[in-house]
Design a protein around this nucleic acid. Structure first.
Length: 220
DNA sequence: ATCCCGAGGG
DNA sequence: CCCTCTGGAT
């Protein structure tokens, strides 16, 4: 199957079956989403959603977070991965947000990555979800699923996957395709044991074609 | 033992 | 490129 046809099959399937895909992180404004995405590194969204209600009540805007300390923030996020690093990042992020961006979550990826705790993946999420830009955030799911499906080939870094996806996807689908790949990776195309037996898109999946798509030899 | 919507530093 | 951070689920 040609890559072009694989992309078409991918967009056709998900635009029909999941036209409203969106993040599972709970938030009510750009600042909260930024905090939630910073916390989400190497952690499940489900766990993030368990700590953010109390966190957002105590720190509803950048001012209160900037005036706090990593030690206090730590007490709210101790159950997520890397709580020490993230507590430090969150306070630093809020301080820089106030000092350099007037407390407003910036729109451009180049500005977002200047904030502590914000790398390219987080910056792309904010740019895409908050500001509706055609940015492709490549996390562990997007990276794995893109390579398995065959949307990317020989992509060994997240940046390479990002560039290939942005190049081949119709621009208006880039934003939602991120969520399609995430959700597919989270619930079906699992890292350790992909659930190919219940996967609805094996008909255009390169991984399935290579591993399970061989013609079955009927026993006599 | 490996993975979860990674980032920072060497 | 590598390493560290380092909680909870499977």
């Amino acid at each position: 199957m040609l890559k072009k046809d694989r992309y078409k099959a991918f967009v056709d399937y998900f635009s029909t079956h999941n036209p409203d895909a969106e993040t599972e992180l709970h938030y009510s404004n750009p600042f909260e989403l930024l905090v939630a995405v910073i916390l989400s590194a190497q952690c499940t969204d489900k766990r993030i959603n368990q700590v953010t209600p109390a966190l957002f009540t105590r720190f509803p805007e950048p001012e209160s977070l900037a005036a706090s300390t990593p030690e206090e923030v730590f007490t709210y996020i101790r159950s997520v991965s890397y709580p020490n690093n993230k507590a430090k990042h969150l306070v630093g992020m809020a301080q820089k947000l106030l000092a350099e961006f007037d407390g407003v979550v910036p729109e451009q990826v180049e500005d977002l990555v200047k904030l502590p705790g914000v790398g390219r993946k987080t910056a792309n999420v904010i740019s895409s979800v908050v500001y509706d830009k055609p940015a492709m955030a490549v996390d562990t799911h997007v990276f794995r699923v893109s390579n398995r499906l065959g949307l990317t080939s020989r992509a060994t870094t997240p940046l390479a996957v990002e560039k290939q996806l942005v190049k081949h996807l119709p621009e208006e689908t880039i934003k939602i395709a991120h969520h399609w790949l995430i959700l597919h990776g989270r619930y079906i195309c699992l890292a350790r044991r992909p659930k190919c037996e219940i996967c609805p898109i094996t008909y255009f999946c390169q991984y399935f074609g290579k591993n399970f798509g061989k013609p079955v030899i009927e026993k006599a």
